[in-house]
């Protein structure tokens, strides 16, 4: 939460825009969290964790990544992450060898299951990391996914 406020203040311009949108009734009052540009620009796991407000991520066996060992097409690689850790606050999906590592983040409010999925692009075979923030700390699990056709192929 703190982190969000910090990022928001740094980019005051768009904050004003969002505020205007909210008051105009365009957005639900819950509003969209400010997009974490620093995290999405980061080039590796450590930098992503830092941009999300952590220091390092500890390896954990309580995070399960469901993804194919081999993806036929890197343009669409299904990735699901489930965690047995207590008090999960967020889940992030990273592709190590993509130009920018972070693909997506999910905030998990109380009552929402620590179990999310989406599909990502992979330019080449790579490790996929799932970073879970739980009880204020960051944890990570990793799985390799081979790609037979890069995310930009025909």
């Amino acid at each position: 939460m703190n982190l969000q406020r910090r990022t928001t203040l740094k980019t005051g311009g768009s904050l004003a825009l969002i505020a205007a949108a909210v008051s105009a009734g365009v957005l639900p009052t819950s509003a969209f969290a400010q997009w974490n540009k620093n995290a999405f620009d980061a080039k590796n796991l450590n930098d992503v964790v830092k941009a999300m407000g952590g220091a390092t991520a500890e390896k954990s066996n309580d995070i399960a990544i469901t993804a194919p060992d081999i993806a036929e097409n890197g343009a669409v690689v299904p990735i699901a992450v489930a965690s047995k850790l207590a008090n999960v606050e967020s889940i992030a999906i990273l592709v190590e060898k993509n130009p920018n590592s972070l693909a997506a983040t999910f905030d998990i409010p109380a009552g929402t299951e620590p179990n999310v999925g989406t599909r990502v692009k992979m330019g080449q075979s790579s490790n996929v990391h799932a970073v879970v923030k739980a009880g204020g700390k960051y944890y990570v699990a990793t799985k390799e996914v081979k790609v037979t056709l890069g995310g930009c192929g025909g």
Partner: peptide, 25 residues
């Protein structure tokens, strides 16, 4: 009135995105 998920995507999410999640209540 309850937010059950906030997500942020980067451009590495696939075209025509698919998203799965679940919640109680």
């Amino acid at each position: 009135s309850k937010t059950v998920l906030n997500a942020q995507f980067g451009p590495a999410v696939s075209q025509n995105p698919v998203m799965n999640f679940s919640f109680k209540g």
